[in-house]
């Protein structure tokens, strides 16, 4: 059986008035069946754009320039929009960022959960609503609340409803974009617990997007660190967090205070995230990197395998190669 999701050299651009935004460049990662992969990085690093591209939901001014997204061996990039509908929600689904605002405020939640079932599986309304009730119970809400409106739910409950919606058509992969941001710690723990339980019970693969490394450290097997649209490092959670290779990962890990560790003030990464319209030359991280040397400003490091399952893009490691010059993308008119 092929790998569930294999992303290779995914490059996404947005056309804006200010110029072309290189939102994601050369993202590559794998997600196995039943595995949870974490996608981490600061805001504006391309996490959400990657997620939207996987679902082929990029806004009108964004496009995939290069690369492949193969889902169960089938490349999704050239798939026409009509056929994409058969894949979306049935094969993979997404829990959008900001659950509070993703639900339709004037529609009862039961209808909102049943809608994808009716659309994608062409099920009868009655059966769909029955399934919607089952889904609500699966995420820990009583089915009596099918007829409630979103405003009658608390933030944590709405997030549960969003998760129930994502599970509506039994997908194999669920992408959760900042599923616990803006929720209280206790609710956060409840939601993470729920996701973990669902993953175990339904044998789901999951892509968890978060700016909070500690959330990923608790829940994911694999983690990919992104910065300014580029993948900096990826590997097994345990290795990556205990022995970060890339200076950016080191900075990021050091920036989080650890309640179970010593009482040290976290360390800052000086500087700001660069503009994606005119990114710095060479390694995108070099203006903020304390180890940067000549080569970093001139050439771009390629994401290279350092040990089994562990990849990093940094010239500090001698085996890391330079990115070969890319063919200039033909701009569509």
């Amino acid at each position: 059986m092929p790998t569930l999701l294999e992303v290779r050299d995914l490059t996404i651009e947005f056309r804006t008035k200010a110029g072309i935004v290189h939102a994601v460049e050369g993202a590559s990662f794998n997600v196995e069946r039943g595995e949870a992969m974490g996608l981490a990085g600061e805001s504006g690093c391309g996490k959400t754009t990657t997620a939207l591209a996987l679902m082929r939901l990029l806004p009108y001014n964004g496009r995939i320039v290069r690369g492949s997204i193969s889902f169960e061996g089938r490349d999704l990039v050239p798939v026409p929009e009509d056929s994409m509908r058969a894949i979306r929600w049935k094969e993979m689904s997404i829990v959008f960022q900001g659950a509070m605002n993703s639900l339709n405020p004037v529609q009862r939640v039961g209808r909102q959960i049943a809608e994808p079932i009716m659309l994608h599986e062409e099920a009868e309304p009655e059966a769909s609503f029955k399934r919607a009730g089952d889904l609500l119970e699966l995420v820990g809400i009583s089915r009596n609340r099918l007829n409630d409106y979103p405003h009658e739910f608390s933030g944590g409950m709405r997030q549960r409803v969003m998760i129930a919606m994502a599970l509506a058509c039994n997908p194999k992969l669920v992408i959760a974009d900042e599923p616990v941001t803006a929720l209280d710690v206790m609710i956060q723990a409840q939601i993470l617990d729920l996701l973990e339980r669902l993953r175990r019970e339904l044998h789901l693969a999951m892509i968890l997007i978060s700016h909070d490394l500690s959330v990923l450290a608790d829940t994911c097997e694999q983690v990919t660190i992104m910065y300014a649209g580029k993948t900096m490092e990826s590997g097994k959670t345990m290795d990556l967090f205990t022995d970060p290779k890339h200076p950016y990962t080191q900075g990021l890990v050091g920036a989080f205070p650890d309640i179970r560790g010593p009482r040290n003030m976290p360390e800052a990464i000086p500087g700001d995230v660069p503009s994606l319209i005119s990114p710095p030359s060479g390694c995108v991280f070099h203006p903020r990197c304390k180890f940067a040397f000549d080569r970093c400003t001139k050439a771009e490091p390629a994401l290279t395998e350092l040990s089994v399952g562990r990849r990093a893009a940094c010239f500090l490691y001698p085996q890391v190669t330079e990115v070969p010059p890319r063919p200039i993308a033909i701009t569509e008119v």
Binding site: G156, A189, Q190, L213, S214, A217, D218, D258, I259, R260
Partner: peptide, 24 residues
């Protein structure tokens, strides 16, 4: 105790038994 137990830690070696409170 419960509140502290659910705070995620950036170090995966520091896993503890989480006390998840019911409800809101």
């Amino acid at each position: 105790k419960a509140l502290i137990s659910v705070v995620p830690s950036p170090d995966p070696r520091h896993k503890v038994e989480r006390i998840i409170l019911k409800g809101e």
